[in-house]
Nucleic acid binder design. Structure first.
Length: 345
DNA sequence: CCATCCCGCCAACTG
DNA sequence: CAGTTGGCGGGATGG
């Protein structure tokens, strides 16, 4: 289901609208409106578009929910700011939001993740520098290394403590760690969200231990929600893909989809700024380098001071989840190791 | 049902 | 203190 022709090379824009569903009528009422807005904005690019914040918000009810998904929004974002570019370009958040016809809040969802993938850097208020995928491949290698340092592979299996999660930039960090899982595991490993959540919830904290089961449940759900968001933009970027239709596991799983949809990134690397070593303090003038709110990405040295949280004895109030995870694990390893001529495309 | 995840409130920061 | 960022979870949606 969904659309699967994802050998996309960022060309089909209206085909998307026309093919999306079988429900007869489809021209998307406000698609036109958005186009108009879009065009109008293009011309005014330089004009410091402030009045544009409040676009009409057309009969939003009419739009199918799927049309508003983060994945699609990210697709459209990537049309404006492609992964394949030389050098970099500046991007104004509010203008981009307006051009895409969405609230600014949604831009943060996307850009925070993409920023965590080194596709952009926060230059200053409302302004990012867009690098696209220029630095991505190099960064992926780094991510993999970092994932190994963090022992994520073991953590996944409850054999190692989950790396403590930072307080800020959680979306970006989650995104990085989520990706690390794929990089650290053998190719084509299938990972589902429940599994991913394990390494993303730091169970070693004091405040963590005495949480009511329902608080833990909330936390868990919250993380999963975030993971859905992250997965959606990753899919859009082409980093992972959803593998649905497993007879065994009903919940969808994801698999790494290789560096990028199209190659040719390899040669592009010109002199872009160095890749921020994950948590690295962006040394100098980059926006709010030392701000509390800024990049506190996985402190690479946090992993050296291992805290105990052997999965076995730390109460684990939500044993329910553990059972589920166990099953999921078993099933997944089964699938993963099955060299069978299964549904592998 | 319940998996998925849009939406926007509002706290945490910043200029 | 107004404006920006972004954590976070209610609850809509549609399979």
């Amino acid at each position: 289901m969904m659309y699967e022709g994802n050998n996309i090379i960022s060309t089909p824009k209206r085909s998307a609208l026309s093919e999306v569903t079988n429900s007869a009528n489809y021209i998307s009422p406000n698609a036109n409106l958005k186009l108009l807005t879009n065009v109008a904005l293009q011309e005014n690019d330089f004009v410091n578009c402030n009045s544009l914040q409040q676009y009409p918000t057309p009969p939003s009810s009419a739009v199918h929910r799927k049309e508003k998904s983060l994945q699609i929004l990210c697709d459209r974002f990537l049309e404006l700011y492609p992964l394949h570019i030389n050098g970099s370009i500046e991007m104004q958040l509010d203008c981009t939001a307006a051009r895409l016809g969405v609230e600014k809040r949604r831009m943060y969802d996307i850009i925070n993740i993409l920023e965590a993938m080194q596709c952009a850097v926060h230059k200053r208020k409302n302004t990012y520098l867009w690098y696209g995928g220029t630095r991505l491949n190099a960064f992926l290698k780094m991510l993999k290394k970092e994932g190994e340092n963090l022992k994520l592979s073991d953590a996944l299996r409850g054999k190692a403590p989950k790396p403590p999660s930072p307080k800020h930039k959680t979306l970006g960090v989650m995104a990085q760690r989520f990706l690390m899982l794929f990089l650290v595991e053998p190719p084509n490993t299938l990972i589902n969200l429940e599994m991913a959540v394990r390494v993303l919830i730091d169970s070693s904290n004091k405040n963590q231990m005495n949480l009511s089961p329902e608080q833990q449940d909330r936390q868990h759900k919250s993380k999963v929600r975030r993971l859905y968001d992250i997965a959606n933009v990753f899919i859009s970027v082409g980093l992972i893909e959803k593998v649905s239709g497993n007879s065994i596991l009903k919940k969808p799983v994801f698999k790494y989809a290789g560096p990028l949809k199209t190659k040719k990134l390899n040669e592009v690397v010109l002199n872009t700024p160095p890749i921020t070593p994950l948590e690295a303090r962006t040394p100098s003038q980059i926006y709010a380098a030392k701000s509390k709110r800024k990049l506190e990405f996985t402190t690479s040295n946090t992993c050296k001071e291992i805290k105990f949280c052997i999965s076995a004895n730390t109460d684990t109030p939500s044993h329910k989840w553990n059972e589920i995870l166990l099953v999921a694990n078993m099933e997944l390893t089964k699938i993963n190791s099955a060299g069978n001529c299964d549904c592998l495309t």
